[in-house]
Amino acid sequence: MDKMAWMPSNALIPERDLQKLPILDIRHLGIDFGGLTAVDDFNLTIGRTEIAGLIGPNGAGKTTVFNLLTNVYAPTRGSILLDGRSTAGKKTYQLNKMGIARTFQNIRLFKALTVEENVQIGLHNAMRYSVGDSILRLPAYWKQEKQAHEQALELLSIFDMRDMASWKAGSLPYGAQRRLEIVRALATQPGILLLDEPAAGMNPSETAELMDNIRKIRDTFQIAIMLIEHDMNLVMGICEGIAVLNYGSIIAKGTPQEIKQNPVVIEAYLGKKGGAQA
């Protein structure tokens, strides 16, 4: 695909990313579970350094969209271009190598392993040494393990978690577990990071800190971030583009300002004016 010839069909993209190939280009995405259509005609483009939000009432299909993007579910319809390459038929781990990383709504850490090991598992594909290298402890092993160790500590220090490197992941406080999941996802060196309710269960000051950190991650790594979140302060505070999902379809797209004033969105969240009476 010619980068310059690309025209955003359903733009949500901040201006600085307009001239570049979008990191994610989703067209007419849909999935049916039996007779139930969970997601339908989902169109979205995300710029290379954009922070995008996906919001909607409970059961709207937000997490399903994430599962479709990482091919946990195979889409029934539509196409996804990740960095210009189709993701159709790829396995989840291959998509991770192609540049998509995610966190989970219900935290999925490697609980019995240490914090550092968790991050090093994220760095798995950044290391290249073979089984033979590890059995014989050849130089390739030492060099790459040392690098991974340093890299892991460096990534942990984004969230001030360096001191916790040798803790068991399962023993971390809740907020730190959420942060560790982000660090682990970052370790896989993605082009886009999908965060599924990163602020769930956090108190307001933790959420504020998380917002700063999400921005910091975007600025340092120059990657795109797409997040699902119910905390409107966070979404409105950091997202540059927001898509609103209801009953599996996008009902609105735009900047935080536009979304806040969109009557369709207000209706989806609060119900129709006067509709509940009578």
């Binding site: 989840t92 781990y93 996802a185």
Partner: peptide, 10 residues
């Protein structure tokens, strides 16, 4: 520890 998380870590 967690198959789904492992796979999403590549």
């Amino acid at each position: 520890e967690n198959e789904i998380a492992a796979e999403s870590c590549g």
